[in-house]
Each structure stands twice: as C-alpha cells, then as structure tokens.
Design a protein around this nucleic acid. Structure first.
Length: 387
RNA sequence: GCGCAGGUGGCAGAGCGGUCAAUUGCACGAGACUGUAAAUCUCGCGCCUUCGGGCUACGAAGGUUCAAAUCCUUCCCUGCGCA
C-alpha cells in the first residue's frame, strides 16, 4: 500500500506514494478537510485545480446529518464528485474532544493561545463508546459503529475510533483514556476485518498519550504492533511539544507504514512533521482561515480584511498559479468582497490557500527527492519569519 | 421671509433631566482559528491614567437646576413645505 521512494539523509523525512484502490497520493501530502462530504465553498473542479490529491471527511458529522440515509449512501467518491481523489474518513474520535472537554476546558487541540470561556461538555464517555448530546438528544457512537459508518461512507482510508484528549488533562486521565483508546483500537481492527475488503478500505490506528513520554511511547508500541495499514498521531500537544512527541512516537511505529499527523497544521508544523517522519497531514486551516479572510503566502499569513489592502491592486502572491491569482484578482477586490459578505471571496481565497499548501507539499516532495529537504525547510522558514 | 423637522463621537443613528464618555450598526485597529457545531468569534475604538480615577465633550453662547446631550432663551447652520 505504501511505497517509500526516497529517504532524507539528515532526518526521518521521506517521499513516497500511498497506493489505494481509487488512486495514489504522493507523500508528503496535505489532506483538505471536507467534513460534511464537501470542501466548504470549493467545487470539485476547483479542488482538483488546486492540486488536491487527498481529502478527509468526518464520520461523526456525516452520521448525524445523514441519519437513515446512510444505508443508501452512494459513497463519498460519488457524493463529492471526486472519483480518483483519495478520501480519508476521520472516525469521530476528535468530536469526543471538540464537543466534550474541548468545550469544557475552553481549549483547542494545540494549547498555546488564551483560553476561551468554558461551556457545556456535550459528551459522556463510557467503556463501550461515547454519548453525544445534540438538539435531538443523546446519540451513542463507539468503535464498532464508527467502523460500520465508515464502511458505508466508502472512503479509502478509515481511522480507528479513539478518544482525543484535552491538553489540560492530567497524567492519570491521559493514561486511563489511552488504555480505553487501545481497547477500542482492537475492536476497530476486528470490526474492520469483519466488514470490509481490506484492499478497498485501509485502516489507520491512532496513537494518543498527550504530552507524556512514557504514554506516547507505550501507545506507539501498542498501536504499532497491531495490524493497521498506517497510523495517525492524534491528541493534544503543547505548541512547543509537538516535535518532542513525534520523536517519542515515530521511532516506535513500523517505518514502512504511512503516518498521518491528525489535525495539523501551519507551515512550520508541516516542516517539523515531515522532518520527524510524517507522511500526511490534514487541517482546516487552509479553508477555514480563507473563509475568515486570511490568505497564506510564502511570507506568512495576511488578513485581507485589513484597511491596508484598501488600495492594494496586487494579487495575493506574485507568481502564484492558483485560479484566484492567475485571474488577476487583487487584494483590494478580495477585501471589498469580504466586506460586502460576498461568498465568492471565501471561495477564491480557499482555492488560493489549498493551492498554496498543496504546492508547499509538492515542493517538499521534490526537495526530499533531490536530497535538499533541510535546505528547503530553512529557506522557507526564513522567508516566513520576515514578517 | 413664514411654517415644520433637525443639528450627538470617523459615518449612520439611539438617547430626550441623574444609572451617559453616551445603546446599536458600519468603518477602523488588534487578536484568535491546528482529526470544522467556525463564510466565525473575541477585544479595542474622545484625551490622560499610578487602572482607583481624572479631564474635555452631544452646533454656538447664555440661563434654569443639587444635577442638562436631555428643559428655557438667543444666535448659527441643514432639510422639507409655503411665499
């Protein structure tokens, strides 16, 4: 399933190809997030035009919105009109956090900024799985059901149902949650085996353990020893801890299998992840921030809503080949569109950001193949901090 | 010239005796967003501050009152109507 083409001489970075029944993904690669079986405000053609090879949809949200229609669901490839794009499905494990302790603790997955106001925890975690509360009441999702739903969704790569913990959880809780996640991993393996044709839908296990070295290592060894097709590194990190966590985890996972860093990230995070041996990433940043008015460039992120772009007739980034920049649309125009709440602005900047991240990954792949990854990383990060 | 309606912070526009440095929206500024309950959210937005408060403010000038953006007088502007 995974083929390594080139390993970097100075780090654990590698370039490769993930082969799936629907097509290939060149790695390192960035999955564009299409939670509800669509990448918000971007059409399939625009997505492909922005060099997308990999997308990720969400089990929890599709399960909640499709309901009974899941039984006759045509499959994500058809629904998303992406027949040859590799599709991952996240298991719903992240929602255990984002709708649960994430709300209660008022924090995101990466602890760094200020805390938000705490609000109600909408989850109830049990040994068998998790109860989620929404306007219709409580709904139970566990490892078995997540596998069943993911089977019906028909993605190419599924993820084991885990418990994503909060960065605020202490050691004792992380340990308890980790062991539960491990038990669920075994259930996912057997359910997956029972339900699916392994060649059609691969299954990745997820490593947890928070920011604790022994837990992370234990988790990597445990999950790494199970017959998964690849691995996700999940959970929470301190902003500065990610590299360390990856150093604990990656060497304890089988080298020949693909590794996905769940929910990450920014440009700096990508370089760090690749250096530490990550093959694929996914993050809402390119699309969400685009809708919120921010465009990514080689020099950093710019907020197009700012008054300083009022008379800026330049495109977002010179020489960029994305649909927005190539068509000559200026920062001034985009700003005006954001100001007038024209949804087209979100579309154009989403396309730009997707193109930006996909191009970054492409350049990273090339640099690894040419044995210049370290060099490329340094020059890229230097440009980024010029701001 | 007469009649009516108005003149409030960058703009629009509330307030119509004390709880008003003044609701709200826009604009502006700062920030956040990392397996998407997010095309969203937070904060700031007269000047100064040892963050307790202090000062100057609601067209202008006077006045009434313990107290005025709010009431009275005059003046200056603006819009509409009639000449």
């Amino acid at each position: 399933m995974f083929e390594i083409l080139q390993k970097d001489k100075d780090s654990r970075a590698r370039a490769g190809i993930i082969h799936t029944s629907c097509g290939d993904v060149e790695t390192p690669s960035y999955a564009i997030v299409g939670t509800h079986a669509e990448v918000r405000s971007v059409s399939p053609n625009q997505l492909l035009g922005a060099k997308t090879q990999l997308v990720i949809a969400n089990t929890y949200h599709l399960w909640r919105t499709l309901g009974k229609k899941l039984d006759s669901f045509e499959g994500l490839h058809k629904r998303m009109k992406l027949p040859h794009t590799v599709i991952m499905t996240d298991s719903g494990g992240f929602q255990v956090f984002s709708l649960g302790f994430g709300r209660e603790h008022g924090v995101g997955k990466v602890l760094g900024g200020e805390k938000k106001k705490a609000s109600e925890n909408l989850t109830r975690i049990t040994e068998e799985g998790v109860f989620f509360t929404d306007q219709d009441g409580e709904h139970f999702l566990g490892p078995k059901l997540s596998m069943e739903i993911q089977k019906k969704l028909g993605g190419d790569i599924m993820f084991a149902f885990d418990e994503c913990t909060s960065p605020e959880h202490d050691y004792a809780y992380q340990k308890e949650a980790l062991q539960r996640t491990h038990r669920w991993a075994e259930i996912c393996i057997s359910k997956h085996r029972e339900l699916t044709d392994k060649k059609k839908q691969a299954l990745y296990g997820i490593v947890q353990g928070g920011i604790f070295e022994d837990l992370r290592k234990e988790s990597a060894q445990y999950i790494g020893a199970l017959p998964f097709d690849g691995f996700g590194i999940g959970g929470s990190f301190g902003e500065k801890k990610m590299g360390e966590v990856l150093d604990w985890v990656i060497p304890n996972l089988p080298e020949e299998k693909p590794k996905h860093l769940l929910g990450i990230g920014k440009v700096e995070d990508i370089f760090l992840g690749v250096e530490k041996g990550i093959d694929t990433f996914d993050c809402v940043i390119p699309t969400r921030e685009a809708r919120h008015g921010s465009a990514w460039t080689a020099q950093g992120r710019i907020d197009l809503k700012k008054g300083r772009y009022k008379d800026d007739t330049q495109v977002i980034e010179h020489g960029c080949g994305c649909e927005a920049c190539a068509s000559g649309i200026s920062k001034k125009q985009l700003r005006e569109m954001f100001k007038s709440k024209d949804n087209e602005a979100g579309t154009l900047v989403s396309i730009h950001n997707i193109f930006f991240f996909n191009t970054l990954m492409e350049q990273i792949r090339i640099s690894i193949k040419e044995n210049k990854f370290g060099e490329f990383k340094n020059t890229s990060l230097k440009k980024l901090t010029q701001f």
